[in-house]
Design a protein around this nucleic acid. Structure first.
Lengths: 182, 182
DNA sequence: GCTTCCATGTAATATGTTACATGATTAA
DNA sequence: TTAATCATGTAACATATTACATGGAAGC
């Protein structure tokens, strides 16, 4: 289980609310580990019970109060312990790819539409990551080495996916043309 | 939930035992969806209850008997229904990437070792996929279009990862050199 | 003698998802 | 007025992991 470790990694940089973390899981870090707010609030509760994080209440005007969590020394120790152990294999659940594999039974046009939608999302992500990489690079890579490498992974991943999507797009269009010619 | 759909996709090609499926999940299809044998046997049980698959006993000599499952017409219908619905977003749990993101607290040498291990696995996979792609290509891409596209995804994914790994390797070695120079 | 492959499963536990619940503020 | 953003949570349910269990055959 390493949702807790992903959270601890994020809290290492700065204190954050559950809501903040959920946003980060939906964006940057979400590329490598994802979690919904429900999971995050639950895990923050457990981490707090085990004194790996603590929080302070921050009342706000016009907005609901929030709890800002910070990592504790125990949390940091736990993180270091975990970092020393070999990481388990990456797990993925990519439903779209399962659809492609089962493409014979699928409607080609439906597949193309989904592909375009996903490609759009990937292009947006790519732009975000590229901007971030540029910023980190200007600030000096060495200072942000691990953030930089993480973002680079995001960039290379999006590019590879988009390149593949282009191949698929062409194949599916050819497929459509053949089908209508029949 | 689409473990069932991943299984149905695999059974579309040919009948298979739970054990066969587990192997496929560990290899080819495992790149996009993974599952352990426990999950698979459970799901096959449920699919059988719902008449989406059926099986025949195959006694073997020197080896335990096996159950060969096939997809039924109901199973095929369920698969078609699912293929029409938009796929959920891909979910990933990549512990190694979480480690990289938290790299400041990690031991650089440990990271390098893990990186090399993962790179080795990726290179092996790449070779497997490239061989498969070549074979499919020779048989005629159009005949195996969806298998071909799935394999291409595998290839591009491995290459992108390995390219990234090379960047990381160089950065980490520089990092080590700087640390020892201090 | 030890490990790996074949082949199937159950049980206990841990994780993750979906649905439900609240409520003010701001922008379209 | 409809939706989105901010912010937190609980409960029910579904899915996934880990540990346990069995046992012959083949290879080192």
């Amino acid at each position: 289980m390493s949702l807790r470790h992903a959270i601890l990694v994020l809290l290492q940089d700065q204190e954050a609310s559950g809501y903040d973390l959920a946003r980060e899981f939906a964006n940057s870090i979400g590329l490598v580990w994802n979690a919904t707010h429900q999971q995050i609030y639950l895990e923050l509760g457990k981490l707090n019970d085990q004194r790996m994080v603590n929080f302070r209440h921050v009342p706000q005007e016009g907005k609901p109060d929030k709890k800002l969590y910070s990592i504790t020394e125990e949390g940091r120790q736990e993180l270091i312990r975990w970092l020393r152990k070999p990481a388990g294999p990456a797990r993925i659940r990519d439903a779209f790819m399962v659809k492609v594999a089962g493409g014979e039974l699928a409607d080609t046009q439906t597949l193309i539409n989904e592909l375009e939608l996903l490609a759009k999302q990937r292009r947006e992500r790519l732009a975000t990551f590229e901007a971030l990489a540029k910023k980190l690079d200007e600030q000096g890579r060495e200072q942000n080495l691990f953030s930089y490498l993480t973002v680079r992974r995001g960039i290379l991943d999006q590019r590879a996916w988009l390149q593949w999507a282009e191949e698929v797009r062409q194949s599916l269009h050819t497929d459509l043309a053949n089908a209508s010619a029949t």
